[in-house]
Structure formats: structure tokens, C-alpha cells
Nucleic acid binder design. Structure first.
Lengths: 205, 205
DNA sequence: GTCTATAGTTAGATAGAC
DNA sequence: GTCTATCTAACTATAGAC
């Protein structure tokens, strides 16, 4: 039994995962484009190229679709953190992470969820994959923040939690899209500008 | 005719304005609480204490309700700008304005609109009261920004438009609500923290 | 698991009496 | 201008055949 069935099971499982990946990719893009409320399940189904009922066989609700997209982004973030050079300073790592998240946002790959929606919050906080990823990322960023403060790179008077929130907020900063709409600056220039205001502030140094 | 009718007309007009003020106040609060998509017209009607159909006699659509709330906030902003001491430096004025907008947000009086919703954008941009107010406020802030840059207070390398967007963005900064949810800091402390990260940045000076 | 078809609900907007 | 009652459209979710 072990010798005959595995390949077939594995193949089917692979197809299933591939389809779910396609779904998540569509959800991710649509969430970045229009946000959670404006995205409809019909759109997702049409974008993936399957029927809506089939979609509900994979994910039990619209909220779970969004959660899956967030888990996906969280995994990408973890992979990015893992790939950072170990010899870099805590400050450099933090700057790299923020640069990466802003790039994701400008590329239209950062899903945007309303922080108010309660049913979505409940689904997200009940999703252990998402919560574990969030905790892991927060812990690692938190450690770098405290290290940077000890080294005198980040203002030690700021509570680490406030710094963490400030960094997270750059991933959904409306300044990015406003500057992009103006069409005066390239994506790299926009990232450089916002990175500068974030770490160095508006005041002259 | 001129001597007999005016008082009655004026009285009716006054009642109408009072009712519309009450509507706008409800809309403003609900928009701050739940955002545009989550706010329903039924809720607004119930909150004001009138029938939904009556609401539609005053404002032709949900989008126009939100626009009226934005015009109201814009007027308050203009009044705040007018009341700033003329002898204050450009930099002090900018800090005061940002402090004020963050206070409004923390007090639950800052309506939050999705920057993606297109029908809302169209209504807003077709509303001359709103657009005139926005232009006026932007012009005055813009002048202060350039003055502060000339005086060396604000980093002159930053494009004024990027500085303006950055200041506007503080009015809807999720860091404010995150820190408020944590219940570790008072509203004044939160404002001081975000004001510091905004103007002085995260890096040690 | 995928489909078509539809149930069930909500919310924006309107009709028509007063 | 205000009301009750209703329309219409859109959307989430599911039933049931294959």
C-alpha cells in the first residue's frame, strides 16, 4: 500500500497545492489593488478561472481567502529576513526590511486589509499560521530594534513597540501611492524619500 | 413682501441647516469609527433619528454624505490655521497642525475614507467646497513648508510635496490606533511619540 | 472537485401618501 | 420634508448534478 499509492496521492496533492497557490496569488493581487471590501469572491473566481463554488471548496470564506494571502506574505517576509546577511548591523537590517516592504507595496503585491473589519480580525487571529508568522517577524524585528537602540543607532528614548509599529506602518503608507500617482518620481526614488523621512525625519540634521 | 416673509424663511432655513449639521456630525463620528464601507446609511438615519428617505432629501448619495463630513473637517482645519499665532515660526505652525490632526484622530473625530474607492473619489473631486478647502489648506501648508526649508528647519533636500503628503498621512496613521489599543500611553504621550518620529525620525540625533 | 443555478441577505436608493 | 414600504442590485454562500 505504501509502495503503490504514494505517487498518485502526491500528484493530486501537488495539483491541489498548485491551484491553491494560483488562488492565493489572485487574492493577493486583488487585495492590493482594491482592498478587502471592494474585492468580491466572484472576481477572484473569474481571475483564477474556476467557478465560485469550487473556490469555496478550497477556502471556507472570503475572510479565509484574505488570511491565506496574509500568510503567504508573512512567509515571504520570513524568507527575506532569513536571507539578510548575518554580518549586517541591526540598523541596516531594519532599513532593508522597510525598503523591501515598500517595494512590495509599490509593486502592487502588498494586500491591504481594513484594520476595522471585525470578522476579518477574528479570522486572522484564529489563523495560527498567520499569528505564528506575525509573532516570529515581530520578535526578530523587535530584537534588532533593541540592538540598534543599544548601539545608539535608533533613538533609545522611543519605546521599541512604537518603533515596530512605525516600521510596519510603512508597508501601507498612503504617501507611497500619492507620490506614485504624481508620476514625478520613480519607485526607487519614492522608496528613498519615504525611507529618509522615516529614519531621519523631516527636520534638518 | 420683503418685510413679512424673511423671518419665516430664515427660520426654516435655520432649522434645515441645524438638521444638516446634526447629520454631518453623525456621519463624521460613524466615519471615524467604522470607515466609509462599513458605515451604512441606515445607521446614519437611525443615529440622527430620521427616516432614511428623509436623509436622501438632504444628501443625494452615501458618497455625498461622506463628502459633507470632509468639507466640515476641512472648515475646522481652516479655522485652526487662521487661529495660529502670526508670530510663530513656520516650523512651529506645522508641528501645531500635525498635533491637532492627530488629536482629532485619537478623539474619534477624523473621518477615515478609503483612498481606493473610485465612486467616492469622483464625488469628492466634484465637490467644489471640498476641493477649494483642500487647495487652500495645501497652499498654506506648502508655503510654511518652503519657508521652514529656507530657514533650514526642514530638510531642504525633501521635495515639498513629499513633506506635505507625510504631514497629511499623520492624520490617518495606524500607529496612533495601535498605540491606543495597547493602552500603555495616554493620548498626549502617543501624539508626542508620533510627532517625534515624524519630525526627528527614528535615528538618534 | 468542478460546474450551473440559486438561495438568502444586505444595503443603497426610491415611490407615494401625508 | 418626513414618513412607511418597497424596489433593485450586488454579494456571500450553498445545493445538487456530474
Amino acid at each position: 500500500m505504501v509502495s503503490t499509492i504514494p505517487t498518485k496521492v502526491s500528484f493530486k496533492a501537488q495539483m491541489l497545492l498548485a491551484r491553491e497557490d494560483a488562488i492565493i496569488q489572485s487574492v493577493n493581487r486583488l487585495l492590493a489593488e482594491k482592498g478587502f471590501e471592494a474585492m468580491t469572491v466572484d472576481e477572484v473566481a473569474a481571475d483564477v478561472g474556476i467557478a465560485k463554488a469550487s473556490l469555496y471548496k478550497h477556502f471556507p470564506s472570503k475572510e479565509d481567502l484574505a488570511a491565506a494571502a496574509m500568510v503567504s506574505v508573512m512567509r515571504r517576509a520570513q524568507a527575506f529576513l532569513n536571507a539578510l546577511p548575518a554580518e549586517a548591523s541591526a540598523m541596516d537590517k531594519l532599513r532593508s526590511v522597510v525598503t523591501w516592504t515598500m517595494g512590495l507595496k509599490l509593486a502592487g503585491e502588498m494586500p491591504s486589509l481594513p484594520s476595522q473589519n471585525s470578522s476579518l480580525r477574528i479570522t486572522l487571529m484564529g489563523n495560527t499560521d498567520y499569528m505564528d508568522g506575525l509573532m516570529d517577524v515581530s520578535d526578530r524585528l523587535g530584537a534588532w530594534i533593541e540592538a540598534a537602540q543599544t548601539q545608539g543607532a535608533i533613538n533609545p528614548k522611543l519605546p521599541p513597540i512604537a518603533v515596530l509599529y512605525t516600521l510596519y506602518a510603512r508597508a501601507c503608507d498612503p504617501v507611497l501611492e500619492f507620490l506614485k500617482m504624481g508620476e514625478l518620481y520613480s519607485n526607487d526614488e519614492i522608496i528613498a524619500l519615504v525611507l529618509s523621512t522615516c529614519f531621519e525625519g523631516l527636520e534638518t540634521r
